[in-house]
């Protein structure tokens, strides 16, 4: 995996998550940012900041991206979500079109 193939997602508290672009593109919103011509300034440097998404939720979302890729390749496991995260996670998922 090369650096160019990764993207850094930054949470509200400034925590960084470095993930594979393929995983990030599970999110339609991030896919648009990464693929639209002209491009968002952040994505040209491979960094996207989400000032509205807390660290716990953003990490859960990254785990979901990877789970989703595994699931798509035929590994049928469950994705566990702590009940107390559900609401925040839904709001973030809605924003990310995930």
């Amino acid at each position: 995996m090369k650096k160019e193939d990764t993207v850094m997602l930054i949470s509200a508290e400034g925590f960084e998550f470095v993930i594979d672009k393929k995983a990030a593109m599970v999110s339609q919103t991030i896919r648009n940012m990464l693929t639209s011509p002209g491009g968002f300034s952040e994505t040209e440097h491979g960094k996207v900041t989400f000032p509205e998404i807390s660290t716990t939720i953003l990490e859960k979302i990254c785990q979901y991206f990877y789970w989703s890729l595994q699931y798509a390749s035929g590994k049928e496991t469950e994705f566990h979500i702590e009940p107390e995260l559900t609401l925040e996670l839904m709001m973030a998922a809605n924003y990310l079109h995930t």
């Binding site: 995996m1 960084e16 998550f17 470095v18 993930i19 594979d20 995983a23």
Partner: peptide, 8 residues
């Protein structure tokens, strides 16, 4: 620190 790398 504050960084997490997801590795496949």
């Amino acid at each position: 620190n504050k960084t997490t790398y997801f590795l496949q």
